[in-house]
Amino acid sequence: MINIIVAGPRGKMGSEALRLIKQTENYHLVGCIDRKNEGMNVSDLEGLPNLDAPIFTDAEIAFQEAGADVLIDLTSPEAGYTHTRLALENGVRPVVGTSGFSDEQLTDIQRLTEQKELGAVIAPNFAVGAVLMMQFAKWAAKYFPDVEIIEKHHDQKLDAPSGTAVKTAKLIEQVRESKKQGHPEEKETLAGARGADEDGMKIHSVRLPGLIAHQEVIFGGTGQGLTIKHDSYHRQSFMSGVKLAVDQVQKVNAFVYGLENLLE
């Protein structure tokens, strides 16, 4: 049995995590971390699965009292970072799907993971298809060094570009020689028109209602083009990756950044 705390149970991703726990035989919800509803039970909240677990507004008390093995955090960069540190300090293994962590925060979490000798998984994207898209893009970049990334998300997403887009660019950088793309005298007549610049690659962020999570990696070569694309049409698409991470974080005593490091 794996005892789990979920942060942000009322959020769209958090509520999907609760449904995953309810339908998985060896998962047991022992508590939730929420900004309100202290002292209430998950089963008391309308629209959430009928699970018997207390709600805590104080994350540290939750980790001290709930008896959790794993934290699932799919909240925001600020809350996710705080929850991850508190989890590790209290012997709980974090599985975090929040994008937007800085390099300094990731380094700090890795240091704490090593200090506590615990497993921790942080993944910019838990959709297995998105992870494969990133790996295919890295492979393609060996042969197509001219590349642009377009990521599209719902209009309530706080960070831009997405963690998936940044992770994709970082993977491409491992195999692509640094180069500035486009005409050397190119000028933006409207600031920002060409998108963010990462090692000469351009990253474009789209935010519109109705979208979930979508990304295209577009490669251009002489006389040809290649587009690698992934779409998440429902937040259920992320749950297979969350389950994989929850199962695997129990077996490792190291910091894992990116779901691809858990795939065979």
Rank of each mutant, 00 (worst) to 15 (best):
A141L: 05
K142V: 12
Y143W: 05
P145F: 01
D146T: 01
D146A: 09
E148M: 10
I149M: 02
I150K: 11
I150E: 13
E151T: 02
E151P: 00
E151A: 06
E151L: 11
E151V: 11
K152S: 15
H154W: 08
D155V: 01
D155P: 08
L158V: 14
L158D: 07
D159T: 15
D159K: 12
D159G: 02
A160N: 04
A160R: 11
S162D: 00
G163M: 04
T164P: 07
T164E: 01
A165D: 07
A165C: 10
V166S: 02
V166C: 12
K167M: 09
T168Y: 10
K170F: 01
K170I: 04
E173C: 02
V175C: 03
E177S: 12
E177V: 11
K179L: 13
K180W: 10
Q181F: 13
Q181H: 09
Q181G: 10
G182M: 07
G182I: 03
G182T: 08
H183E: 06
H183N: 11
E185T: 03
E185Y: 09
E185L: 14
E186K: 05
E186V: 05
K187V: 09
K187I: 10
K187Q: 11
E188G: 11
A191G: 05
A191F: 15
A191W: 14
G192L: 07
G192V: 00
G192W: 05
G192T: 13
A193N: 05
A193Y: 00
A196V: 12
D197A: 09
D197V: 13
D199P: 11
D199M: 00
G200K: 00
G200R: 01
G200S: 10
G200N: 09
M201Y: 04
K202C: 13
K202P: 06
I203Q: 07
H204L: 07
V206I: 15
V206N: 02
L208Q: 14
L208T: 12
P209T: 06
G210K: 02
G210D: 05
G210R: 02
L211C: 10
I212Q: 07
I212A: 02
I212M: 07
A213G: 12
E216I: 08
V217P: 05
I218E: 08
F219W: 11
G220Y: 13
G220A: 15
G221H: 06
T222Q: 12
T222C: 03
Q224C: 14
G225R: 03
G225A: 09
G225Y: 06
L226M: 11
L226C: 03
